[in-house]
Amino acid sequence: MRNCSIAVQRYLPHEHAEPFWQHFTVPFDESTSILDALNYIKEELDPSLSFRWSCRMAICGSCGVMVNGIPKLGCKDFLRNYLPRNYLASESTAAVSAAEIRIQPLAHFTVERDLIVDMNEFLVHLEAVKPYLITDAGADETPLEKHAQTLAQTNKQTPAQLAKYKQFANCINCGLCYSACPQFGLNPEFVGPAAIALAQRYNLDSRDQGKAARMPVLNGHNGVWSCTFVGFCSDVCPKHVDPAAAVNQGKVESAKSMLIQMFTGRG
């Protein structure tokens, strides 16, 4: 086991007015993740360090943090990535020569404590895009028994129709893309990458008829047009959802729906 220096940005709301840095030395090997390091700190060095985590396998989306200024999932990012190659294998017993790894809470969110941010700021945007199947029949509000006949069967959906939206359905709501998005940093009202990707996921679903209900949010001032295609959101996405693509496909849709509105006077 070799040692590694880690600095964590702390914030204790009732004890300190400002965030501060705390430095730790953590043993690690080939498989030690940032999350493992944080758990080591909590269990061995300072029990007051707070952060969210659960699944350890990059699917629950809890453990997003900034590592050296880049949004990462703590469980899917490894200390080995930040140290010189062969550092683990080298015979040298010199203490931590490599630079310190800096861990901070996700950027652009309100920080509640240590590495915990206010995720509701993201969830309100998610809820705003009506992220559920909307069907003309209005069956979405009626219970199972009423539509027993039709509900006994599934909709048809070919693999090609599934492939159109599948990628955008893989979002784990970790919020890394919001921390990567300078537009969200400048304007917290911006609906943002993950929520727009989800809107696009349902808009592209062959079973859905809710596009008209979702477009007003996407067309609005804080919708797709707030995006300037920086593209970093897609770069940091741990599930390759490519939210930047979703947002900009949304621009095409938005332009179409605005043109239609202009000529027909209807949405």
């Binding site: 200024g69 880049i70 309100t110 940093g185 300037t228």
Partner: peptide, 25 residues
């Protein structure tokens, strides 16, 4: 009780990705 770091005017100097973006613009 919480804090929110403000985005400074120099945000785009902090990462190569953002600099390339500014170059594109």
């Amino acid at each position: 009780m919480s804090y929110k770091p403000e985005l400074t005017g120099s945000w785009w100097l902090k990462h190569r990705f953002f600099m390339l973006y500014m170059l594109r613009e």
